[in-house]
Amino acid sequence: MAESEMLVLQGLHKTFNPGTVMRKMALAGVDLTLSKGDFVTVIGGNGAGKSTMLNAIAGTFQVDSGTISLGGRNVTHLPEHKRAAFLGRVFQDPMTGTAASMNIEENLALASRRGQPRGLRWGITARERAEYREKLASLDLGLESRMGSKVGLLSGGQRQALTLLMATLKKPELLLLDEHTAALDPKTAEKVLRLTSQLIRDNGLTALMVTHNMKDALALGNRTIMMHEGKVILDLDAEAKKHMTVEDLLAQFEKASGRELANDRMLLV
């Protein structure tokens, strides 16, 4: 494997509820390779397998077949909490990424020790506090003066911004963003998206971002993939993205999938 390959997915298959009427083939042979520094946006209709692919990478469940390599390591059978050492994750639901009953600095301290053995040293140091205050100030949300506040008191947008900071506090080999702005109002979503790009650029991160907003998908990142029925059906590089409009993308989808994109959740503008 080449040195620059950060993520390699080979032939990922996953069927939920096998052998029942609820049987659902969620991943039908996903092959995908991300180079170091790639920022890939992922689009596709409902049930296309976008979130399932991210969860497979994160280890939320074991895949039926195929392999997952992260930074040259085969992590296919590694449990979720061990893979966390290499991954930063932001979820669709702002409640998921943070512990509501713990305060802001405790959440950050937990995240800064991701993938490290946790011992009997004190959970947060004065030096860390200063560092967190500085990083929170850069979010420009006023959170630096509320480090002792419970995260449950924050708004959805603030929680997503905090989760983003937590996901990147200890530099991950891969950042997984699962429609992380979908639950926010348009203005907040835009702000969080701007912060996302900035964090990815500043830290030189490799990232995989699922979005249902086609315009965002084309505007952000250096690569866009489209999924359909558990497979990657379209892979656009930076050059191809530049000349692509949302209408082109729709036409491409029809050509590649053999059907029209009928999806009320997909935002075309």
Partner: peptide, 12 residues
Amino acid sequence: ANPQMARAQGIS
């Protein structure tokens, strides 16, 4: 407080 968040932070 949040098992899913705990796992995402590498806690079993």
